[in-house]
């Protein structure tokens, strides 16, 4: 990647111009940034944990994810049209946006740097098993991989398989096992 020399200054100058012209209020920019610093994959983890413990919720999530996720209070920009895809012993789902970096902000927060990188975007659709090795993830040969390229305004959430040894666990405790990458498909939930 290019070095950023001069970019911070250019961005600062642009903000000055926009403020002088009355287009933006600096406090509003702070408010926007703070919201995105605050939202994160804990939201998605709550959705997954609810799905694991509540069969009726799971059904709603897999049929109409946008509404099911809204039940837990999450929604808004980049989460307008959600689809949940469920991992099973037969199939593993992986999410990418090859054309830009579409990502379900309301449930996962802003994407990590690697999700936006050319290395990830280029390889996810042609060599996902090799890509998963970069993340230290090895799937069974028998487990198919379905990659979802987010080419429209549909945003995908992977529901990972519930780890063994969690029978009878309550939702909050289960949610702690649901790492962000397991909801993108580049990771698996933590096993207790």
């Amino acid at each position: 990647m290019a070095d950023d020399t001069g970019t911070p200054q250019r961005v600062e100058a642009l903000e000055t111009i926009l403020v002088e012209k009355g287009y933006v209020e600096p406090a509003a920019l702070d408010a926007i940034a703070e919201i995105y610093e605050d939202v994160g994959p804990k939201n998605g983890a709550k959705v997954v944990a609810r799905c694991w413990v509540d069969a009726a919720y799971r059904e709603r999530l897999l049929t109409d994810a946008t509404s099911a996720i809204a039940e837990l209070g999450f929604g808004g920009r980049q989460g307008e049209h959600m689809v949940a895809v469920e991992n099973t012993p037969e199939v593993h789902h992986l999410i990418v946006c090859t054309l830009c970096s579409c990502y379900p902000w309301p449930v996962l927060g802003l994407p990590p740097a690697w999700y936006k990188s050319p290395a990830y975007r280029s390889r996810a659709v042609i060599d996902p098993r090799g890509l998963l090795a970069d993340f230290g993830v090895t799937l069974a040969e028998s487990q198919r991989i379905e990659v979802h390229d987010s080419t429209a305004e549909i945003r995908y959430l992977v529901v990972p398989m519930r780890p063994p040894g969690t029978e009878g666990w309550l939702e909050d405790k289960l949610a702690e096992l649901v790492a962000r990458d397991s909801m993108i498909g580049t990771g698996l939930p933590r096993v207790p």
Binding site: L18, A33, Y120
Partner: peptide, 28 residues
């Protein structure tokens, strides 16, 4: 492009200018 470089998660913005850039794009 080489392997995916997975770094431990830091804050969502790597620098103050990224924070401002993101917010300006949203605001405009």
């Amino acid at each position: 492009f080489g392997p995916v470089v997975v770094k431990p998660d830091g804050p969502p913005f790597q620098a103050e200018w990224e924070r401002r850039a993101h917010a300006m794009v949203i605001a405009l």
